[in-house]
Amino acid sequence: MTRSSRRVLELMRLSMNSEKVADRIKNRIRNGERFIVASHIEPDGDAVGSLLATVRFLANIGKTASGYLPSGIPRRYEFLANEDSFLQETPEEDFDVALILDCSSLDRLDASFVRFLKTRGVERIVIDHHNNEEPFGELSLVRNNVSSTGEILLSLFEQLSPSAITSDVASPLYAALLTDTGNFSFPNTSAETLESAARLVRYGAQPSHIFTKIYDELPVEYLKNIGVAFHNMEFFPEFGIMFVSLPRDEVVQFDPSFDFTEGVVDFTLKARGVKIGALFKQMDGSFTRVSMRSVESIDVGQFARSFGGGGHKNAAGMSLPLSLEESKSFLLRQLKKLL
């Protein structure tokens, strides 16, 4: 048997296992009554959209569902929330199932919520599209060839109850797809992704409205921070690497509920000749967060995982216990080895 044939068989096996897990999750949702829905810390569009849509879908099929968002909804996604209320502290009441969305590991969850899960013995169901080398759910549906967790959820919801996909379910799911594909421009945008987006529009999502709210109604201070990042740009043309950075003393702190770095790193790949772009966000003198993007042929997800981070093939991140300058020097040395 050739190597390619073995790979095809392996993909078929994984697909069959994935479908079996999906069937078990659907049965658990049908039979459960009380659900708590959570996602990773510092939630992005996929996390927020998936959580909102799931809470509303569960309510539409007659379940009791609560969303857990300890830091609240980031400002750019508040328009999706309408009048929804969310738990910001671990609840006193009991739940049958915890649905954990768009989260690849326990250490990406709020620490209080992890303690809640362990002390209450709540059944954990994980639905995600990141590489997950250490599954932490009793049931884990992980499809890392899919654009977003929102796309996975749409498929599940359609199989459970298409009539329960109202416009207020479709809109946050569309936002999940939109943001995790970079406006349908990243390599993870497949024909299936675009077909999913089209179905969400038929369910009532309004593409122009959602795009405008997320990308066009930005605080002026956010644009100032883009300027700060690129004022500190370093380009290494011989390797196709670009670094931009946000030193703590230069960052315009204007609203703690707004992620003032989300999307900044995407601009690095717009420059001709850049294969890998990285944004360095200085948290304090000895701790730096790094967000990375790459062209399709370079796997920064695997690279980030080797240093305790994670993500996708072309979009990943990590935290380094180093100063800003030390982090840049370290990453440049390691990326040169990768290339």
Rank of each mutant, 00 (worst) to 15 (best):
L200V: 09
E19I: 09
L141V: 09
E19A: 10
S18G: 14
E217W: 00
L117F: 09
A316V: 11
L109V: 07
E19C: 03
R75A: 15
V244T: 10
K20F: 13
G72Q: 01
G227M: 13
A278R: 03
T54E: 02
P74L: 13
D266I: 09
A170S: 07
S171H: 06
N183W: 01
D94P: 00
A53Q: 12
K63G: 10
G277P: 02
L87D: 08
S148I: 07
L200I: 11
F258Q: 02
I152T: 13
P219E: 07
P321N: 10
D299I: 05
L106F: 09
N27E: 15
P172H: 12
L194S: 12
L331N: 06
V300M: 11
F184E: 02
I127F: 03
D23I: 10
S185Q: 14
S291D: 11
K118G: 00
V251F: 09
S155F: 05
G273L: 10
R3H: 11
K270G: 15
S297W: 01
S5C: 00
G121S: 13
G263Y: 07
I125N: 06
V201N: 07
A22H: 00
T189E: 07
D96Q: 13
E195L: 15
R120C: 08
S39H: 03
F136G: 00
D46E: 08
Q334I: 00
N132T: 15
P43N: 07
R13L: 10
H312D: 09
S39W: 04
R124C: 12
K63M: 04
S190M: 02
M12N: 06
G308M: 09
F86K: 07
P321W: 07
G45K: 07
L338W: 07
N188K: 03
L9E: 15
V97D: 08
L106W: 05
L9I: 11
P135G: 05
A47F: 03
S291A: 14
F303G: 02
P162V: 03
L14T: 09
A170N: 05
Q302E: 15
L153T: 09
Y174C: 06
Q206L: 11
M233G: 04
M242L: 15
M318Q: 09
N314P: 00
V169M: 01
A59V: 00
P207I: 11
I214H: 08
I36E: 04
L223N: 01
A53G: 08
T90M: 06
L141R: 01
L218V: 08
G45R: 12
D44Q: 00
E326P: 02
F254D: 08
F235N: 01
L117Q: 01
R7P: 00
V114P: 01
Q282H: 11
H231A: 14
A191W: 05
G45Q: 10
I210V: 14
T288N: 09
D44W: 06
